[in-house]
């Protein structure tokens, strides 16, 4: 069986990287929202919420920085 999404794989590795980084950026936002829901149902405490939100935030910054670098290089 073929994976349909593999058919839309770009020929250009940098372009694939861009797809993946953008997807991860969204995923990190989703995960921060999950943390908020976990705090709401007392599955995590406030300190853990803060610590993990900070951690995800840092990763999101680097992901966005990377996205900008990729876009810049693709434009060259």
């Amino acid at each position: 069986e073929i994976d349909p999404s593999s058919l839309v794989t770009a020929q250009n590795p940098a372009l694939n990287q861009l797809y993946e980084s953008v997807a991860r950026d969204y995923a990190l936002s989703d995960t921060m929202h999950v943390l908020a829901r976990l705090l709401n149902r007392d599955a995590v405490n406030l300190d853990v919420f803060v610590k993990k939100t900070r951690q995800l935030g840092r990763e999101q910054f680097f992901t966005r920085m990377h996205i900008q670098n990729i876009i810049e290089r693709l434009r060259q």
């Binding site: 999404s5 993946e20 997807a23 995923a27 599955a43 993990k52 995800l56």
Partner: peptide, 29 residues
């Protein structure tokens, strides 16, 4: 099922992974 995880980090990693795949396929579609 988050409560079934040993640690929060394992859960978060799985969640990020699944959501990344989700968004990746959506972008492709």
């Amino acid at each position: 099922d988050m409560g079934k995880y040993e640690g929060l980090d394992e859960f978060l990693n799985d969640y990020i992974g699944t959501r990344t795949q989700y968004h990746l396929k959506r972008e492709k579609l």
